[in-house]
Amino acid sequence: MSLAPQVLDVASARPRIRPLRWVAGAVLLVLVAQFAWFLVTNPRFEWAVAGKYLFDPNILRGLGMSLLLTVIAMTLGSVLGVLLAAGRLSDFKPAAWACGVYVAVFRGIPPLVQLIFWFNLGYLLPRISLGVPFGPTFVSWPTNSVISSLTAAIIGLTLHEAAYMAEIVRAGILAVDGGQRDAARAMGFTARQSFVKVVLPQAMRVIVPPTGSQFISLLKGTSLVSVIAMADLLYSVQVIYNRTYEIVPLLIVACAWYLAVVTVLSLGQRRLEQHFGKGQR
């Protein structure tokens, strides 16, 4: 038996029957409910304590320091990263080699190890001096007066970040069509003008998305500086819970702030990607 074809209209079709999805949905619902129950009924979360500390001035100061470190290390690291990327792509082989070695070394050593290393630089190098290499010295300072936990944190995070940014920028530059560089040179732009005016702006489309992720991981990475007694967000909550033993609620405060900032940054990243994605191909 067959229906007359003209009677059928797929617009009236019902959704596909997918029993597995019903099962999966039910399982998920149970898991979420169970977790929520755990969060709400477990008294050790001490939600009231977390709420009390959320806007504590010391914690806000720590948050501010984390943000400041992120911005400083990202800015310096990006500038250094662009220079390293340009160096690696240079036809001057020693520069390309040196920049390649830098990237390999600073990407290979865990940032936590680098931070501790810079913090203890005074042991290796008791004085920092300016002068002629192997010749006379003009000025010199004791290293421990120069390397505070702040400078150690900035140096460590920046050098680490620069290595990653160098790779990101290099990939971006390589993604720009060679014809663009030809055209820039043909118009009479110098090598630097071609790079700054034509190649780098077009590389941004490729550079921006991973840089956004990089910014977010750097923000989270700043929590490492707490080991060198730098008063960032994590260190600030540690100072408090070492005194009050309210470890879990204070860690929740830290998590809440990290999550909040990362969420805002992710939204910003999406906007930036849309901005740099247009205008090209």
């Binding site: 069509d177 014809g179 030809d182 055209a183 043909a186 034509v198």
Partner: peptide
């Protein structure tokens, strides 16, 4: 110079 692929500055 005029190139086969135009090479206008895309940005």
């Amino acid at each position: 110079m005029v190139f086969q692929q135009f090479n206008l500055f895309a940005h």
